[in-house]
């Protein structure tokens, strides 16, 4: 579903991602774990065209990320950002924020779809006319998820989806994501610094350090402590 081959991303002279390859199967939930500066978020941003200076190859659902126009790629892959306080337009109501991607794609039946999406993420229809500053962090992240689902993508890229939230809210959002994945047959690529979140959510994971891939593990391997890198051990001890 997602194929990343020998991707290198540069920010000026600095190398943010160095020759990373990974493969995510359809319906799978794949985790990228590492600390700040490991390049894990950069991979996500590169896959959706938010970075410019990169080499290698990324295909999503058979579409080449470099050559496919964003408008088309948008119907296959969407992203949920880390900070729900910064990812919703402060002047747009919830309804408008969720409808915007569909307006861009000139879809039909937008109004009904907004109601349906709100239902899907567990907020009632009265939220349509609320502004982001009237919502809690968890509610905002739900809205951001609804917006990402508006175009019915098959792949969802989640960049630290719960790290700005309280633990009790984190549990609700993680549950919601699990339910959505099952219900809508989604493929997840999740980035987190929290190994516990990744172990809970992902079938397989890749550990990253200093812009390189350290190793790829299945959830079972992680739980059986069958890893080779001392760095993975360090992360595990800190979790």
């Amino acid at each position: 579903m997602i194929d990343v081959r020998n991707v290198t991303v540069r920010f000026g002279d600095a190398v943010a991602v160095a020759d990373v390859s990974l493969h995510v199967r359809p319906g799978e939930s794949f985790g990228l774990v590492g600390e700040s500066g490991s390049g894990k978020s950069t991979i996500l941003r590169t896959a959706v065209g938010l970075t410019s200076d990169w080499s290698g190859e990324i295909t999503i659902d058979g579409y080449d990320a470099k050559s496919t126009p964003t408008r088309e790629l948008a119907q296959r892959v969407q992203m949920v950002f880390q900070d729900p306080y910064a990812s919703l337009h402060p002047r747009f109501t919830v309804g408008r924020a969720i409808a915007e991607p569909m307006r861009i794609q000139k879809m039909a039946g937008i109004e009904e779809r907004v109601d349906e999406l709100l239902r899907l993420i567990g907020l009632d229809a009265s939220f349509r006319s609320r502004y982001p500053h009237e919502l809690s962090g968890g509610q905002r992240q739900r809205v951001a998820i609804a917006r990402a689902l508006a175009l019915q993508p098959k792949v969802l890229l989640l960049d630290e989806p719960t790290s700005a939230l309280d633990v009790s809210v984190q549990a609700e959002i993680l549950n919601l994501l699990e339910d959505l994945r099952a219900e809508l047959d989604l493929t997840f690529l999740i980035v987190s610094h929290n190994l516990a979140v990744i172990s809970h959510m992902c079938d397989r994971l890749m550990v990253m350090q200093d812009s390189r891939a350290v190793e790829v593990l299945t959830r079972e391997q992680l739980r059986a402590r069958e890893f080779s890198s001392p760095y993975t051990r360090k992360l595990l001890e800190a979790a």
């Binding site: 984190q170 549950n175 809970h200 739980r223 979790a239």
Partner: peptide
């Protein structure tokens, strides 16, 4: 409600 590395899969208690 905190997930843990070795915790059971499935829904987290809310």
């Amino acid at each position: 409600c905190m997930p843990s590395v070795d915790g059971p899969p499935g829904r987290l208690p809310v």
